[in-house]
Computed example of a mutant assay.
Amino acid sequence: MPTTTTFVLVPGYWLGGWAWDAVAERLRDDGFVADAITLPGLDDHSPSETTEITLDDHVAAVVAAVHRADGRVVLVGHSGAGAVVSGAVDQAHEVIDDLVFVDSGPVADGVAQAPDLPSSVRAITLPPWPELEEQGSSLDGLDADALGRFRERAVPHPAAVARQPLALSDTARRAVPVTVVCASYSAQQIREMSEAGHPWFEELAQYESVRLVDLPTGHWPMWSRPQELADELREVVARHPAGD
């Protein structure tokens, strides 16, 4: 009997599970289970409810998702969710078969994404497009309609999540095979940054099995190239058949 494969899809900042709709549909059409989750505090437009939500809360939500998943589990994190899935694989590596970072990478112990963010900031709103690109998030491949949907559905991200340092304790997480889908940075650029000990990719060099895949586009390939991203996720399963 074929083994079920569940993709647990975790979106980055400002996004709910809806961000994965186009990719999830393609995976389901091929018989996979796609669980696109919405992290705590990102299911409405009320930042007042997000004040106390922490990185620990986001990690706990993903750990719960991988534990309820059927069959083999492929955990996928986009962008800022790199910290969340890094925390989840630390706690639940025994039930995660593959780890995929989409234009992201594993975060090291003790690292916070925005440690200097003032405590008075309760939620991080989606910046204007020019500011977002200045911060390094390419909008390549997104037309006016896609940008409009993004702006309309974006939810302020809990600021405490960005301020909290990631706490990791189990180096066994590094035995889980990693695939990095390289969109706004090339595989060569990420390889060089990892080898140089760049803080964004220092932890990547600690994993035992790392595969870098080029998918040149902007920072949101689930919108700009959903078919190709789904193909790359299917390839993760094909490269590591159940039981390997």
Score class of each variant (00 low, 15 high):
5 T>L: 12
5 T>Y: 11
7 F>E: 13
11 P>G: 11
13 Y>P: 03
14 W>V: 00
15 L>H: 01
16 G>W: 06
19 A>C: 08
19 A>T: 05
22 A>K: 10
23 V>W: 03
27 L>P: 04
27 L>W: 09
28 R>F: 00
31 G>V: 10
31 G>N: 12
38 T>S: 13
42 L>E: 10
42 L>Q: 11
43 D>K: 12
48 S>I: 01
49 E>A: 12
49 E>Q: 12
50 T>N: 06
52 E>T: 02
57 D>P: 02
64 A>C: 04
64 A>Q: 13
65 A>D: 03
68 R>H: 06
71 G>M: 15
75 L>A: 06
77 G>V: 01
79 S>F: 00
81 A>N: 07
82 G>N: 05
83 A>S: 08
84 V>D: 05
85 V>E: 02
85 V>W: 02
87 G>E: 11
90 D>T: 10
91 Q>C: 02
96 I>Y: 06
100 V>I: 07
103 D>Y: 03
106 P>R: 08
106 P>H: 07
109 D>F: 02
111 V>S: 05
118 P>L: 03
118 P>K: 12
123 A>Y: 01
131 E>K: 08
134 E>Q: 15
138 S>L: 02
139 L>V: 04
139 L>M: 12
140 D>W: 04
144 A>E: 15
144 A>P: 05
145 D>K: 15
145 D>C: 08
147 L>K: 15
147 L>W: 09
148 G>V: 10
149 R>A: 09
150 F>T: 05
151 R>I: 04
153 R>P: 00
155 V>M: 06
159 A>Q: 15
164 Q>V: 02
165 P>H: 05
166 L>A: 04
169 S>C: 04
170 D>W: 14
173 R>G: 07
174 R>V: 08
176 V>Q: 14
177 P>T: 11
178 V>Q: 12
180 V>T: 07
182 C>A: 13
183 A>K: 05
184 S>P: 03
185 Y>L: 12
186 S>H: 01
187 A>D: 10
187 A>P: 05
191 R>A: 09
195 E>M: 09
197 G>L: 13
201 F>A: 09
202 E>T: 12
205 A>D: 14
206 Q>C: 08
209 S>H: 15
210 V>D: 09
211 R>C: 02
215 L>F: 00
219 H>K: 01
222 M>S: 03
222 M>Q: 15
223 W>C: 00
223 W>M: 06
223 W>N: 02
224 S>W: 05
224 S>G: 03
225 R>L: 04
226 P>V: 05
230 A>Y: 14
230 A>R: 14
234 R>M: 13
234 R>E: 13
239 R>M: 08
240 H>R: 15
244 D>N: 07
244 D>Y: 05
244 D>F: 04
